[in-house]
Every structure is written in C-alpha cells, then in structure tokens.
Amino acid sequence: MTVETLFALCACALVGIGLYGLIVQPHPLRKLVAFNIMGSGVFVLFGALAMRGAAAGMAADPVPQALLITAIVVAFAATAVTVALLLRLIESTATASLADEPPSGD
C-alpha cells in the first residue's frame, strides 16, 4: 500500500471518529474538539489526494495544498468564534448545556 492510500484510509477513519464525538459528546467544547478532528480527517484526505496527483516534478499537486492552507485558517476562525460563544454562554448562564429551554407556558 502506498503512503497516500494509507493516510487516505486513516483520514476516513478520522472522519468517522470525529462524527462519533460530534454526536455523542454532550459538552459543546468536546463537540468542538470532535469537529476539529473530523475536519483534520477531511484535510488529510485532501492532502493524500494531492500527493496522488504528484506530477511535473512536483511532489504533490499544489492546488489542493493551497486550498488546505485556506481551509485550516477557516477552521481556526470557526473554532475561535465557537470558543468565544461558549465562554460567553458560561459567563451569563453558568451552564454549557445545549439542551432546549424548558417549554414556556406549559
């Protein structure tokens, strides 16, 4: 098995692991970590595809690699906004629960 296939398969598993965490972990911060793991799985998959595309004297297709840099920065921005939201939520309600408010009026 080539190194890119190995890491591509590894990336698929990472996506699965991240998805599991996103569904199951109740705390928003843990969901965020799981999202980052899932995201990194997608990135590694893209990186493996880039390496499959090595040609013209380049060790890898540069287009996906450039897109990856953008995607990593976007994921960081997402993490920053989510962390700020979470901290503000904890500050103002002292809980981090995502559960729905008890229905009003019942």
Binding site: V15, P28, M38, V42, L45, A78, L85, L98, E101
Partner: peptide
Amino acid sequence: GSGETLRAALRYMLFALCGSVLYLL
C-alpha cells in the same frame, strides 16, 4: 446578548459547522 439567544447561537454554530465539514468532504 441574553443567555437563551447565546445558547441558540452556539447550537446554530456547531450544527452549521457539521454541515460545512460534510460539504467540504
């Protein structure tokens, strides 16, 4: 800035992130 809307926003954010990562995939 109320707690209820912050919770709604956080839910929106996390769920939207799930959606966008699936799109990117």
